[in-house]
Design a protein around this nucleic acid. Sequence first.
DNA 1: GTGGTCTAGACCACC
DNA 2: GTGGTCTAGACCACA
Lengths: 124, 124, 124, 124
Amino acid sequence: MITIDTRSRVPIYTQLEKQIVKLINLGIYEIDSPLPSVRSMACELGINPNTVAKAYKGLEQQGVIYTVTGKGIFVNSTDMTKIHKLAIKTVKNALIDARNSGIEKSTISEIVNKVWEGADNDSN
Amino acid sequence: MITIDTRSRVPIYTQLEKQIVKLINLGIYEIDSPLPSVRSMACELGINPNTVAKAYKGLEQQGVIYTVTGKGIFVNSTDMTKIHKLAIKTVKNALIDARNSGIEKSTISEIVNKVWEGADNDSN
Amino acid sequence: MITIDTRSRVPIYTQLEKQIVKLINLGIYEIDSPLPSVRSMACELGINPNTVAKAYKGLEQQGVIYTVTGKGIFVNSTDMTKIHKLAIKTVKNALIDARNSGIEKSTISEIVNKVWEGADNDSN
Amino acid sequence: MITIDTRSRVPIYTQLEKQIVKLINLGIYEIDSPLPSVRSMACELGINPNTVAKAYKGLEQQGVIYTVTGKGIFVNSTDMTKIHKLAIKTVKNALIDARNSGIEKSTISEIVNKVWEGADNDSN
DNA sequence: GTGGTCTAGACCACC
DNA sequence: GTGGTCTAGACCACA
């Protein structure tokens, strides 16, 4: 369900964070249900447990998940505001750069339409 | 005319590249006119000449500027296709992430409007 | 009468210890009266019996309660010296950290007043 | 100037964070001056560079310091609000626990006086 | 030179 | 079993 591109410039833990957020939004990881343990997730993806832990901790700091010591990590009753703010900031910066490089608004609008209608590609 | 934020997470050479592209699009750097030399640009901005050289090299590889050995660096007859492709790719990735984190299309449309109507902020 | 916050970073057995001490100080658990058995306490709070046992053991080592084998666990004739020493040490450390981070004495005094006058919130 | 107690229960990176904050407040680390590099600090303290990096990153997230890529880590124009909030919360929790265990307000007031007048002990 | 990321493997506290 | 901390050592991008 989660795929990691080791060759991508995007850090592995960032890829993980994004995909987990996606899966939560899709309802595949349900509220108050546990995420795969650090070790099992690491094993499944073929990456180091520390990297998984780093991604989990990042999501925890953003309020997306919460930790119960000795039990595991659970999906929070989704307060996505922090995540949204960050994503919107990223979009805005990308848009400003696009505008500054002379791209037309219509071109962007097309892409917006494509992305929101289109298939479920991933970034990375 | 060019401002560098040394504290930003965006690499300095990237900030430089983006702002030069912007100035070209605004017609402030004119086609076949020379850019400031590496040394003068570095001195003016208070950054390392190597960093300026790296930015210029990057722009040259993207066909935005061309070097005449012993003469200087000149603005190319605006072939922005590579720049555009890159910017569009960045926008698309940002949009995909935004969608995956549960942001509504309407929210994005608002931002698009703001950016194309609004003042000329910079990213970084 | 006792509430456990499983999501808190404070270990469950610590939360238990603190709240039992509090109830003893309030006179709700009376001297030489029996505490609820490990199993019933665990059941009531929905936590692991091992955790309750750990809390009881901790309190016993601090002289707050004593075990009569085969009979049960009883509140000791309130010797709170060890508990007090520990609590004071914790307070002192917190105060030192606060001072080192530049907090004014007056700010702390206000908080002290609030806590000793105010309602009976819990930490965790 | 900084001392680490490897045997303490307090994580090394936390000890480091606290002591750096202290040194900043004392004016020993000056605003916009660089902190010792990750490697040199690690070497000096005899701990792992990763641990130092973790402490630095924590302080950065709290706005105490900022990173300039390739240059180093610098003291921010001290916005200590986050640090203060955290410290106050810790103090308050410790005070609540102390009150609940039956400690008198006067005892605490004495300690407050001692800490703010007294020598520069450290916690850990 | 700087910090950032990743891996490997260890030990600990909690439940 | 769980996550949290720490070490050792590697590689990369940036200035």
